[in-house]
């Protein structure tokens, strides 16, 4: 599709509500533009008629209940899954597999504690390009030919430093805590200097304090590198202060906008089609009541 076509920053959710976009000081073509997107998974419609865009450098949370199609959205952006209806453009092109401009951290439950492998190695594998062979070449030196890797080591060191995990480089993957692992995965995604980061549930196994720390790291990256970041999460509270935009997927529909606009009783009621109440506590934490079988979804 035409990437330069300007789409209004106002998103129309099928429920009839509308919400203005995030901070509007970013110009240029959108990093992601979706129009009337419909997604099927095994011939079942996951969600449909989604129209939204994400500006370059925005920090976006993708929120929604289990099985709502959050990971499917990522798989589409990565070119691993195709929309059945509608158009999608990522960084000015149709999504394609192996896009070096996207760094991806998939949802991983744990890593086997028996994985005795240096973190540094995993990070280096993230270095851009699909490469074959042993990953280096012999270079002549004073002491005869020596096997050299191509710039990977430095890139991996920088990436680990950027996520505050330099000291983990030579540790074994299996020995890391959940928070440390997420930092290493983040470094793996960053090592290719991507323009967009897709992080699938990086906070799922972390306690609130670790979640906040990781979000701070990610937010720092978003600001320092200007990298557009989409983060799938169950709980929006750890990051609510630094978000530019929320993509809320539920009930087969997608709503987009600034957090303060999407996370209101009215907009979520419209999205779910049943009455949903958004409550805020004294510290502005959000609790959503109703919507899914009358169970509280977001907790603080």
């Amino acid at each position: 599709m035409d990437a330069s076509s300007t789409h209004p920053l106002v998103t129309h959710a099928p429920g009839g509500f509308h919400a203005p976009g995030g901070t509007l000081d970013r110009f240029g073509p959108p990093a992601i533009q979706a129009e009337h997107l419909e997604v099927r998974y095994r011939n079942k419609v996951v969600w449909k008629d989604a129209t939204f865009d994400v500006r370059p450098g925005e920090f976006v949370a993708v929120i929604g209940p289990n099985g709502a199609g959050k990971t499917t959205l990522f798989r589409m952006l990565l070119g691993l899954h195709w929309p059945s209806v509608g158009t999608l453009s990522v960084l000015g092109a149709t999504p394609h597999r192996g896009n070096p401009r996207i760094g991806y951290v998939p949802q991983r439950h744990t890593i086997d504690s028996e994985t005795h492998l240096e973190c540094d190695k995993l990070v280096r594998l993230g270095y851009p390009g699909t490469r074959w062979g042993p990953g280096g070449r012999f270079r002549p030196t004073m002491w005869g030919p020596r096997f050299r890797l191509r710039g990977e080591r430095e890139a991996a060191e920088n990436a680990l430093e950027d996520v505050g995990a330099s000291e983990l480089a030579s540790k074994s993957l299996g020995s890391l805590s959940g928070g440390e692992l997420q930092r290493v995965f983040l470094a793996e995604a960053l090592v290719g200097n991507p323009d967009m980061l897709l992080l699938d549930e990086p906070l799922s196994n972390l306690d609130l304090r670790r979640s906040r720390e990781l979000v701070e790291t990610i937010h720092g990256l978003v600001q320092a590198r200007g990298v557009t970041t989409l983060l799938v999460a169950h709980d929006i509270n750890p990051m609510i202060k630094c978000l530019d935009k929320v993509i809320y997927i539920a009930n087969g529909r997608v709503a987009t906008g600034a957090p303060s606009d999407v996370l209101t009783s009215e907009s979520l009621t419209a999205l779910y089609g049943v009455h949903v109440e958004v409550l805020r506590d004294s510290r502005n934490n959000i609790v959503i009541v109703g919507g899914e079988d009358d169970r509280g979804e977001e907790g603080a």
């Binding site: 990565l78 192996g98 996207i102 951290v105 995604a189």
Partner: peptide, 23 residues
């Protein structure tokens, strides 16, 4: 093994990312 070493290592260790990378 020498030819497919790196992709194989990636695919063995980090299947989802390797797939997204286009291996």
């Amino acid at each position: 093994v020498v030819i497919i070493y790196r992709p194989l290592l990636f695919a063995s260790l980090d299947e989802d990312v390797a797939e997204a990378k286009g291996y």
